[in-house]
Design a protein around this nucleic acid. Sequence first.
DNA 1: TACTTCGGCGCC
DNA 2: AAAGGGCGCCGAAGTA
Length: 466
Amino acid sequence: MKPVTFEAYQLLRDGLVEFSGMEANGICVDVERLTANIQEVEGRVKQLTAQIRQTDVWRLWLKIYGGKANMGSRPQLARILFKELGFKGEQNHDTNRYILDEATLANIDHPFCKMFLEIERWKKLHGTFLLGLQREVCDGYLHSFFNLHIARTYRSSSDSINFQNIPIRDQEVGAYIRSCFIPRGKDRVLVELDYSGVEVLVAACYHKDPTMIQYIENPGKDMHRDMAAQCYKLKPKQVTKQLRYCGKNMFVFPEFYGSYYAQCAVNLWNALDSMSLTLEDGTRVKDHLAAKGVTKLGSVSDYKPEPGTFMDHLKDVEDDFWGRRFQVYGRWREDWFESYLKNGGFNTLTGFRIDGIYGRNDVINYPIQGSAFHCLLWSFIQISRQLRRRKMDALLVGQIHDSILADVHVSCVQDYLILAKEIMVDRLMEHWKWIIVNLKIEAEVTPVGGSWHDKKKVDDIYKFAL
DNA sequence: TACTTCGGCGCC
DNA sequence: AAAGGGCGCCGAAGTA
């Protein structure tokens, strides 16, 4: 850990103090609800397990493994699927073990795999989240740790339990665990404030790419939509919400983090079937691509994609992405890495030094990830101090990289929202002159008597009313 | 029994 | 030339 400016040292020191306060505050847990949810999920796991034991595959499993047969063992299941039932499986090149992750199982067309994934989904909720929380909760409160001395990027981490990976994407699973987090009183609510797209904004502060800045500053422009259009050979207007999601999470972000066209192509191509991608008028995107002359995924050999395939197309999209559209960003990545090779390290915009042996992707990603978190950290410190100074009935209870969770009395929700916005956007931009794009935040508030799962977006914090 | 390693997966 | 960044936790399986 090496803050190279006094200010960077102060940021960690003050952050440590405020995080300690937050840990002591803790977050209120509905213990009865937690117990009930554990019961319910255990019941579901038992029922699904009984069901899967009736299948032929499980009978085969028992025949081969006898008393050692373990429904939770993926290595055992891999043997059944790939050695006994003849499905094609990939192996880890170093260990020769079969890969049997969710994507692999989802692509095997067999009901047993679907059932297995369903059970795993609920077991993950049960073991990691519900029992984990029950183990750590004390007198109705959870006091997770929030560390500032762990991550190589100078981000934070959290443990006992990790408060930064509570399920939310899978709404059904998320509900079981998030409904256990509640405000510490009948007349209070939870308020969550997060920076929107802060890593993209902070990246722009490093590379200053004019095209990227236009995308950021112009609300009519949409990078993810445009890239989805290009990847699937569509007009931007044809891009549905689902297609935009694919552009964002299967091309744009992977490219930012250092993936490359061949990997993106596989994911975008598999999504055509697995997500049944269609246009507004019902046309299958796969058929649309076929009409444009692209009928095969294709592969790469001798560093060259097979001509005329989707793979080949994605190579063109990538070349265009870094070589033309975001060429300043692309050049920054090369220059930044060159400079690292020459100097053996680099400094972040927030005043930290990162020395040591790192790969290209690390060198490009660390400063962005770290500085983005430091925006949150600086705001967190200021908000926490102001709440004390103004004797407001609001406590900070959690932090998730780019968001702050507070437990607020109904009488001061609006004051809290306005104070926090002022600090997170206006004062932070005054404080760090290197922030050259406008920061934005989103607010979510739970109903009175609701849980973290019930949080709802606030349209306009200045017109907020409970 | 206690500990470590690995694969996998939850979040940003 | 290489090819997805950061964490923490779980269960399985191997080792001492």
